[in-house]
Design a protein around this nucleic acid. Structure first.
Lengths: 211, 211
DNA sequence: GACTAATATGACTTTTAAGTCATATGACTC
DNA sequence: GAGTCATATGACTTAAAAGTCATATTAGTC
C-alpha cells in the first residue's frame, strides 16, 4: 500500500506517477522495469518516489489493485442481475465489458498479462483476494442456465466453466495483441459465442450460425 | 548456439549442465535465474561455462530448442498421417502426446511456460521458426476434416483452430500445474474433446456424451 | 519574517549478478 | 620430458539498478 504522503498529493500528480508506472510495467514487465525511468517520466525525484511508496513492488501492487477494482466495478451490474438473464446474455456482457476495458486501457491489459505470468513467482494473495469472483462467475452463469433448462444434459459445469474461461482469456489476448478492428472483433466474438453455444446449449436454444 | 567446446564434452557432463540449467530456469524463469547457482549445481566453474556458451541467453535458447525439437519429433508420426485420419483422432493424439511429454518432463513444460510468457520481450525468431508447424496444425486437421465432410457447414476454420489451440494450451497447463491424476485426466480430456466435437462436428459424427 | 513541519532532491551507497582473464592443470605428440 | 594445445579455475571487474540520506526547498502558522 502506498504511504499517506502519496494520497496527500494533488490528484493530477498522482495520476502522472501512476501513468508513468503503467507505461513502464506494461512495456517491460515487472522484472525488467526500471525505477529511474519511472521517476524520470513522472518528473519527480527518486527520493520523492520513496516517500510515496515502500518500494517498486508496492507501486506494482498498487496498479494491479486499481485495475482489478475497476474491472470488478464495471462487472458488478452483470454479476448482480445474472440470475434473471440467459447464459448467453451474461456471457456476452462479461466478455464485452472485459474487452471494453482492455480496449480503452490497453496497458491495463498488458500489465495484467505480466502479472498473470508472474503469479507463481510472488503473488497468491491477489489470486485469493479476487479469483473467487472472477473465475467462478462463469460457473455461476452456467449453474443458473442449467436450472433454467438452457443447457444440454450431463455437462460437467465446473469443467465447462474452465474451458470457457480459457477461451475468453486467450481470445481477448489475441484481439488486443493484434489490435483487431471493431468490425472484425464483433465477428470473432460472435463466432466464439456460437462455438460455445453449440457445445453447451440444448439444440432448441442455439441461435443461428453454423449448422 | 553453444560453442564447439560444449559438444566436445562427454555426454554425461553435458547432461548435468543441461539438467542444472533446466532446474534453474523452470524454477525461477529466465529473468530471475542465476548463473552462479547453475554452475554450482553443475559442478563446473564460471569460466568453464563461458567456454561452452556465449552467455546466459545462449543456454536458455539451447534448452528451448532441445525441447521444441523433441516435441516436434514426437508429433511427427501424427503430422505425417493426419490426412488419413479423422479430426477427432488427430486431435486426441496431438493433445495426448503433448501431455505425455509435459508429464514425463514437467520442467520442460514450466520452461516452455516461462518462454511463452517472455516472448514479447526478446523472442520472435523462435516463434517464426516453429510456430507455422505448431499453431497451424489444428487448422490443417480441420481443413482435412472439412474435405471429408466431418464438419458442420459454415465454420471459420482459422478461428476455430485458434479456439481449439487456446483450449488445449490452457487445459494442459491446468492438468500439469495441478498434478491431476491419470484417471481424472482422462476424464478431462474426454470432456474437452466432447466439448469441441459438439461444437464443430456434424451431429451425425458426434460420439456419445452430453445430449 | 521567523519558526516549524512536510515534502523534494539527486548524488551516493549497496547489492546483485553477468561476464572476464591471468593463471593452472591436464592431455597428447614427438 | 619438453613443447603445445585444449580445457578448467575462481577471484576479479563491470554494469545496472534499487534504495538511502544529508541537505534544500516550500507551505503554513504566529
Amino acid at each position: 500500500m502506498p504511504k499517506q504522503t502519496f494520497f496527500n498529493l494533488p490528484k493530477t500528480k498522482r495520476e502522472v506517477i501512476e501513468q508513468a508506472a503503467l507505461d513502464e510495467f506494461a512495456e517491460y514487465g515487472f522484472d525488467n522495469s526500471n525505477m529511474n525511468r519511472i521517476v524520470g517520466a513522472s518528473g519527480i525525484s527518486k527520493g520523492s518516489f520513496y516517500q510515496y511508496f515502500d518500494d517498486k513492488k508496492d507501486l506494482y501492487y498498487h496498479l494491479i489493485d486499481t485495475i482489478v477494482t475497476q474491472k470488478m466495478k464495471m462487472l458488478e451490474p452483470v454479476f448482480n442481475t445474472y440470475e434473471a438473464n440467459t447464459f448467453s446474455y451474461n456471457f456476452e456482457e462479461t466478455f464485452r465489458i472485459g474487452l471494453e476495458l482492455a480496449d480503452s486501457k490497453p496497458k491495463y491489459y498488458l500489465l495484467g498479462e505480466d502479472f498473470a505470468a508472474k503469479q507463481p513467482a510472488f503473488i497468491k494473495e491477489f489470486v485469493e483476494k479476487y479469483n473467487p469472483l472472477a473465475m467462478d462467475i462463469y460457473a455461476k452463469f452456467l449453474e443458473r442456465a442449467n436450472q433454467n433448462g438452457e443447457l444440454r444434459e450431463g455437462l460437467d459445469i465446473g469443467l465447462v466453466a474452465s474451458f470457457i474461461s480459457s477461451l475468453i482469456n486467450q481470445t481477448t489476448v489475441g484481439l488486443i495483441a493484434q489490435g483487431t478492428q471493431p468490425q472484425q472483433r464483433d465477428y470473432v466474438i460472435a463466432e466464439l459465442i456460437a462455438f460455445i453455444e453449440r457445445s453447451i446449449l440444448k439444440s432448441s436454444e442455439v441461435r443461428g450460425g453454423a449448422t
